[in-house]
Design a protein around this nucleic acid. Structure first.
Lengths: 118, 118
DNA sequence: CCCCACTACTTGCAAAGAGCAAGTAAATAA
DNA sequence: TTATTTACTTGCTCTTTGCAAGTAGTGGGG
């Protein structure tokens, strides 16, 4: 369990992204269009498969992502952001803006995609 | 160590608030005006003193808060948000807006202070 | 149809982090 | 000068994380 919310917007939020990995998974879905388990594994961040499995299950339980079999290839699974997940975008942009201002390593341009492919 | 950032605004952000407690400490400073160790301990969230001590030290190291002795009472210590810390406000508001929309328990009003005292 | 590769996981174990209770040092209050 | 307040630290246990290896279901090639 990551966290149990309790009558507070931040506790509620922490239940979704208050750990090391969930926010990075959400980032990869939102800005890089990742949809598969292997995508997240190979994102170069170093998440381990058991933790990724757990985080995806939890994001699904909290209705941030949906999970479905790829109709074109039964081995694959497609993960996608729900509307609730997509609604996190303003928060994500706020984080990017803050880091852009305060992290010397971060260089947030107007082109969001470049921020992650450079 | 909570996290080491790596050329990405979210990794950088996670270094600051990517754990169970840091965001709640920031919340208490930003919206409730807490300044002392005991304030955070008694906030009713259940953080333990060793973890609080560690998180405050870390937030100080990352220049989100400052730590100084209370000039009026040498036993006390004053913790305050730096400008860098205060710049997290838009992100905090984005989280509140998101939770207000999606968490049935959260009722974000125009009056931010009431959100935490109700 | 058979076999091997691929994909999305699970399992087992060691290491790191969190939680709890008790203890300590410095400063003030009585 | 003794007790109390404040901000911690210490030691221990329990939970979570990270790593390596293993497995089940599907698909493709011969």
């Amino acid at each position: 369990m990551i966290y149990e919310p309790n009558r507070c917007p931040f506790r509620f939020g922490l239940g979704v992204f208050g750990d090391r990995w969930s926010l990075l998974v959400i980032r990869d879905m939102m800005f890089r269009g990742f949809t598969r388990f292997q995508d997240f594994m190979n994102a170069g961040e170093g998440i381990s498969s058991n933790v990724l499995s757990d985080r995806l299950r939890q994001l699904e339980a909290r209705q941030i992502v949906t999970r479905e079999k790829d109709p074109a290839d039964g081995r694959k699974v497609l993960y996608e952001l729900t509307d609730k997940g997509k609604d996190l975008r303003p928060m994500m942009l706020a984080i990017m803006a803050w880091a852009g201002k305060h992290d010397p390593e971060t260089n947030v341009t107007g082109d969001i995609d470049r921020t992650f492919t450079d």
